[in-house]
Design a protein around this nucleic acid. Sequence first.
DNA 1: CTTGACCTGTGACTTAGGTCGAAGGTTTAT
DNA 2: ATAAACCTTCGACCTAAGTCACAGGTCAAG
Lengths: 148, 148
Amino acid sequence: MYKIGELAKACDINNDTLRFYEKNALLCPSTRSESGYRLYTEKDKETLQFILRAKGVGFTLAEIRELLSIEVNKADSACADVKTLVDSKLNDVETKLAELIRFQTSLKRLSNACCGGAESAEHCTILEALESDTNDVRHEHKLNDKES
Amino acid sequence: MYKIGELAKACDINNDTLRFYEKNALLCPSTRSESGYRLYTEKDKETLQFILRAKGVGFTLAEIRELLSIEVNKADSACADVKTLVDSKLNDVETKLAELIRFQTSLKRLSNACCGGAESAEHCTILEALESDTNDVRHEHKLNDKES
DNA sequence: CTTGACCTGTGACTTAGGTCGAAGGTTTAT
DNA sequence: ATAAACCTTCGACCTAAGTCACAGGTCAAG
């Protein structure tokens, strides 16, 4: 049995995070001591590690709650249910990825176009790009310029 | 001169967003009418468009505030200052990108390993991967498995 | 002269995932 | 027996970028 601080230290998280997970129905300690201290079992620790691993692949706590409800009750769920969660998450991730790649492309273009010198910024190509709506900074669509 | 609703509509944002930008020192209307209405000039509109374009390439409002302070005072800033902001943002973006790619890789691996069938999830490879700490789900380091 | 569309300011609420402080109870070691 | 190190609950605070509600003032049309 772990007290809160012991489990937290063992898993390298904050005590408050554990309380937060409890409040949000992710991980409730199996028992309490006479005096009300949370007592976590080895099984609780495994659940916590499940949570941390799921966080590690990008799941939100709400999604992890879903995964856990399948996990505690495996026999009544299908593989397909689990895979759906993973694929839907993968979709989210790829959407965000696409946005970040647009950012990256635009920023690289801005950076490459700028001399970066100590001269006054009066003719800075970056500022000019942000000022002008012709020659949209955000998308390359028909710009047919090459990344240098 | 635009009233708040006119400028908001012209730029397809919310009136409250404009008030929010004002409160956060991003865009103050040049004047007010007798009765206190905000009045935005054409120049204000251009500044707003600058802000929206900068948002479009991924800058936060705090960063845009920095860009604007250079923009209003170009002569006293160097190109290098601007480029530094862009490069530092690019760095942020690439850090986030790296994390999302890790998520993507892990999720793809989980998804590919799962049959996704209607069978009970009792032996679901996804759940097993999240349960076990051997065979870490998050990183490929020495797994030398191939993406199918 | 009233109705409706607009504007004002203030302050609260949202999401996500915690983190912190205060006031007090418990355990353990000395 | 008392101090240090733990634990409890509760509630407030944090970031980011808004969004919404409320109570009231203004403006143009009919």
